[in-house]
């Protein structure tokens, strides 16, 4: 059969695949997951950018029938599209945890997620533990972190501290983590990161109908939030998934109807129809996971949980 080339970039690898012309998004996605040995597939997606807007490959539609960039090979980023409500309960496989760790770490370093200087130092110390193992002063000599990107540039600029001083600060915490294995260090990182206000939120610029006030809409694991343009930390208004009746769009307008019929219907405009489609897609996916978490675990999840528990116990013994 005729094929076309696809390049898939994960947080720590690049892979190339030959896809059959007739393949649906799901065929490619499943192949990537199998190649990675990833079973907790529901958090992830294949992302691409088209005309400056980020989009996710649809599973049920043919790859070539989607509005993907015309390039050879076609480039996709394999990324977490949805986030768990509690990392320690939901991320079971080590590979899943590792991919989340890498993605969230990049978001923090790139300042897409705001993090206070104190917490960035603590997070950096866990990242160092994950990479270098236990601290050994005989081996980890001053300057050993010189090549690592560990803190956001904003934090580095904010203080009059030398690279050496930062390294000392991080190492003081790092030395405290002795005995923590790589997967544990990455999980500790995620447990702290998930409490940051901007963690796991997809933000969109929106305009409100009447007075044209610019606002931000945030979609995350718990629901939909509305923020002022200058405050991404605390929403002015929140709609939990369980309190929403219906979400719909028509062209650039999007409507959220609360379950409570007396409550005000929230209407706004996004910049493009394409963005509304993406917002609704994220709402459906997040709501689906929200419902799944509140049901009895499937057999597959039960098995994976049991396996993860066994694996953890085995590792602890080894360690």
């Amino acid at each position: 059969p005729k094929t076309f080339k696809v390049q898939v970039i994960t947080m720590d690898a690049e892979m190339e695949f030959s896809c059959e012309m007739k393949w649906k998004g799901k065929d490619l996605f499943d192949l990537v997951c199998r190649t990675l040995g990833l079973r907790e597939t529901w958090f992830f997606g294949l992302q691409y950018t088209i005309k400056g807007v980020c989009a996710w490959l649809k599973m049920e539609k043919k790859v070539l029938e989607q509005e993907i960039p015309k390039e050879d090979p076609v480039k996709f980023h394999f990324l977490a599209k949805f986030y768990p409500e509690k990392v320690e309960e939901e991320l079971l496989q080590e590979i899943t945890q590792h991919l989340f760790f890498l993605q969230v770490k990049k978001q923090i370093l790139d300042e897409e997620i705001y993090c206070s200087p104190e917490v960035t130092v603590l997070l950096a110390s866990y990242a160092v533990q994950a990479k270098y193992g236990d601290y050994d002063p005989a081996f980890h000599k001053p300057g050993f972190l010189a090549q690592d990107e560990l803190l956001p540039k904003r934090v580095l600029k904010q203080y009059q501290m030398t690279v050496h001083m930062w390294e000392e600060k991080i190492t003081a915490w790092y030395a405290e983590h002795r005995g923590i294995a790589r997967d544990e260090a990455e999980m500790n990182y995620l447990k702290i990161a998930q409490d940051l206000a901007m963690y796991g939120v997809n933000y969109f610029s929106i305009e409100q109908n009447k007075n044209h006030t610019d606002l931000l809409l945030g979609v995350d694991a718990k629901g939909i939030h509305v923020y002022s343009i200058d405050n991404r930390f605390s929403p002015n208004k929140s709609f939990e998934w369980s309190a929403i009746r219906n979400i719909s769009y028509s062209e650039k307008e999007l409507t959220i109807k609360p379950l409570d019929k007396k409550a005000e219907v929230f209407k706004f405009f996004s910049s493009q129809l394409k963005v509304n489609k993406l917002i609704l897609q994220l709402c459906i996916g997040n709501h689906d996971l929200f419902m799944k978490r509140r049901r009895v675990d499937s057999i597959e999840i039960q098995q994976m949980k049991a396996q993860a528990k066994e694996e953890k116990a085995r590792k602890k013994m080894e360690h």
């Binding site: 489609k277 459906i284 689906d288 419902m291």
Partner: peptide, 22 residues
């Protein structure tokens, strides 16, 4: 529970989605 009436319209009923999964 997800309905696309035309290419520029879409609607998702969270209530129906919940009912169908119970």
């Amino acid at each position: 529970y997800f309905a696309r009436k035309a290419n520029h319209k879409g609607s998702y009923s969270l209530v129906d989605a919940l009912k169908s999964k119970v």
